[in-house]
Computed example of a mutant assay.
Amino acid sequence: MARPWAVDIGLALLVQAAMTMPFVLPRDPRLPEATWAAYGLTTLTVLPLVWRRRAPLAVLAAILAASALYELALDGPGQPLPYTGLVIVYTIADLSPSRKRMGVLLLLPVVVAVSVWLNTRSAKELTFSLFVFGAAYAFGRLADTRRRANRVEAEQAAARERARIAREMHDILSHAVSLMIVQAEAGPVAVRTAPERAEAAFDAISGTGRDAMAQLRRMLGVLRETDDAPRAPQPDTAQLPGLLERVRSSGLDVAYEVTGTARPLPPDLAATVYRVAQEALTNTVKHAAARTATVRLAYGEDRLEMTVTDDGCGPTGGGGGHGLVGLRERAAAHGGSAVCGPGPGGRGFRVAVTLPLGAR
């Protein structure tokens, strides 16, 4: 993107080229002579545009002074349009605070009327001048409004992205740390009673930690936007068996059922299915004191229904914290819904997520 000062210099050169044309094009001998003095004074009305962003009101005053001097002291070629005045009025409408903008807007008709009186005293010129200056002011306000709208949209997009990253970080860390804690707590007991199980528990701890570190490195690499960042697709339904196997290593007996005609899902939807299962099972391991859990995927014609149930005591602390909120946000992002509450017959806990699918 070009730097502002380069844009302003380029704009000043463009305006200078436009204002040079009456001095170099063939002229009617009856018109005022195109002298170097007149051309130099014309250049002085253009030069302040280089500073139009930094001091727009001062630039406006300089342009008015140079233009008045040109009208009163020299009888040089006229211009088809007041280029410099239009540019600075646009700039003030776009960049200046409200009070300064309103002051210029109220002063503008007076300045235009005086300029027309000094030039042709024509009602036609007065009407045309008021129109073009009014249009320049309106375009400046439009540019400011559009820039503000883009800024708000960018801030909203950044907020959504922060929320998405927070959900991903929560799911990755919460799942991994919960399994590692469970395995670590079971390790000392297993060492005394079943050494072979202790070795498996430590293997599960290291495997879970390596998997979490790999996912975090990928996410941080994307945030840094470096070319050598490790790349990998988002998790999907094909990786659910591996997820369930890691959860089983914590001692929770997890069943996996699929009904209906399974079919490939869009990557973002498949990632949501994986993360929902991950978060629900993490809550079961952390809070439910459950022995068994079941993950069910039911494929319908136009929707996917996913349920995760356990036989534990359910989350404590008023609703499961940020994880269940994240589940609802993930489902809502796809136009779906998530319901969390007691399981069938009031036993255990149940997470039910409905996600719309495209027509088969």
Rank of each mutant, 00 (worst) to 15 (best):
A293Q: 05
A200W: 04
T294I: 03
Y90L: 15
G209H: 09
S250I: 03
L220M: 13
A201S: 10
A194T: 15
R147I: 02
R147T: 09
G260V: 00
Y256R: 10
E168P: 01
A289T: 13
S178E: 15
G317P: 10
A184N: 10
R231P: 11
E245M: 04
A186P: 00
R147M: 12
M169R: 08
V112C: 03
T309V: 10
L25W: 13
R248W: 04
A61R: 07
M180P: 09
A190Y: 09
P264S: 03
R160C: 08
P195M: 02
L13R: 08
A55N: 07
A12G: 11
L216F: 09
P56K: 01
T45L: 05
A158T: 13
A190P: 12
S67E: 14
E125N: 12
L130I: 01
F349P: 08
T237K: 04
R218K: 07
R167Y: 07
E125M: 10
E185S: 08
S67C: 03
R164A: 14
V222R: 14
V353Q: 07
D236F: 06
E305F: 03
P264D: 07
E71K: 07
Q183R: 12
T272C: 14
P26S: 11
G78M: 04
S96H: 02
A18I: 00
A255Y: 06
L72K: 05
L297T: 04
L304A: 05
R146V: 14
A163C: 06
E33P: 09
Q239P: 05
L252N: 04
R328W: 01
A17W: 13
F23H: 14
T208I: 03
R160K: 06
R192L: 10
S129D: 06
Y137T: 14
A338Y: 05
P344E: 15
A280H: 08
N119C: 03
L108N: 01
F23D: 06
T193V: 01
R3P: 02
V325S: 08
A255F: 02
D8A: 15
L41G: 05
A149H: 15
G85V: 00
Y299E: 07
Q278L: 10
